[in-house]
Design a protein around this nucleic acid. Structure first.
Lengths: 211, 211
DNA sequence: GTCTATAGCCAGATAGAC
DNA sequence: GTCTATCTGGCTATAGAC
């Protein structure tokens, strides 16, 4: 571990820069709309050099997804350090974080239908491992919250999990952001409310504040 | 109006067939993944013939969107015939319908980010008129439901409107459908519940039945 | 309006020198 | 590993005969 450091570090830094560019462009334009030339130009290297690091456009997107999943895992582990917080609040914190990432233009958005991309991701152990790690950890909170009656026990757990994932790339947020009528905080408050309390709103609950 | 009928009818029927194919393929694979060749093959005509009816791939997608918006308008007008039904129930009926259309594989899904498609649609009066008609009619119900306290008055009306639109193409539904664990009716019931009552569920409300 | 054939373009991926 | 230059395939759109 003591040797090989410098050149490797440079490479690692370059890969980080690549992933950052891909991540941002993916959030901005989506997988189908970006081109590899564009990514290369954004990073400031030649396209052929990109292909030395990642062997396809799909792998580039996969790397961005892996990174965001790792950020999510880091957040979850941080949240777990306070075991007194009710599961529902942990889930709400995760949802709030995904919305903040979206607003920051850092949430890569992939088309659900692109089949070559899908199969690349499903065949990537690095991706699947992290996806399952996130799912398991959220799944535990979901079960706990349902037992405590904080999340509707009539909902199948997958429904809750998929809904949380889906709200992490919900087009409603970008529409509201583009509308420019509300502050970022207000947008997040309203979307968290629709997510957890529904359009009808929860009669007994305070809607404001409660960071 | 009495003349010109037959040949025109044949053309109209062909255009309907084209739109049906586009609509189905759009629901199945999404705009970016389908090719005009594929549409032509599905309809059973040559690609060049398609371009006699619609002058671009974007216009094809626009025609499909116009048709689904017209179906929505027809539904809304039908629902309006019973003025005794509370606004919230009207909105729920519309949401239920969009989910049924999704499950039937008839909800075209367009990428939110494709800019050439976006500008084609925004420049199409036929599309924009219908989109605004739907928005206005739903908007009236939303305002009414908020006044009656059936929809959370703290939510900006656009949030409610956008959320309903977004639930019409929510990936959660196709994920659950692909999972194969639940009946179509059950999926719709759960998603309507998460949409209107949130993940937490509404304490006072019955969740089952109520078609 | 319908077809076959093709133009024209663009983007993903690679060759080969350094 | 990085670059420039190029290949290759596929896709939108059109030409031109019927």
């Amino acid at each position: 571990m003591a040797r090989i450091p410098f050149r490797q570090q440079v490479l690692q830094a370059r890969e980080d820069a690549i992933i950052s560019s891909v991540n941002r462009l993916l959030a901005l334009k989506g997988f189908d709309s970006i081109t590899v030339d564009e990514v290369a130009a954004d990073v400031g290297i030649a396209k052929a050099s990109l292909y030395k690091h990642f062997k396809s456009k799909e792998e580039l997107a996969g790397a961005a997804m892996i990174r965001v999943l790792e950020r999510a895992l880091a957040l979850i582990d941080t949240l777990k350090q306070d075991p007194k917080i009710p599961a529902i609040e942990q889930l709400r914190s995760v949802a709030r974080w995904t919305m903040q990432v979206q607003l920051a233009g850092e949430m890569p958005s992939l088309p659900a239908q692109n089949s070559t991309l899908r199969s690349t991701l499903m065949n990537s152990a690095a991706y699947m491992d992290r996806l399952m790690a996130v799912s398991d950890k959220l799944g535990a909170w979901i079960t706990e919250a349902q037992s405590a009656g904080q999340v509707d026990p009539a909902l199948a757990p997958e429904v809750v999990l998929y809904t949380l994932f889906a709200r992490a790339c919900d087009p409603v947020l970008s529409l509201l952001k583009a509308g420019g009528q509300h502050s970022d905080e207000h947008i997040i408050d309203m979307l968290l409310s629709t997510c957890f309390n529904g359009l009808s709103g929860a009669p007994g609950e305070p809607r404001k504040g409660a960071r």
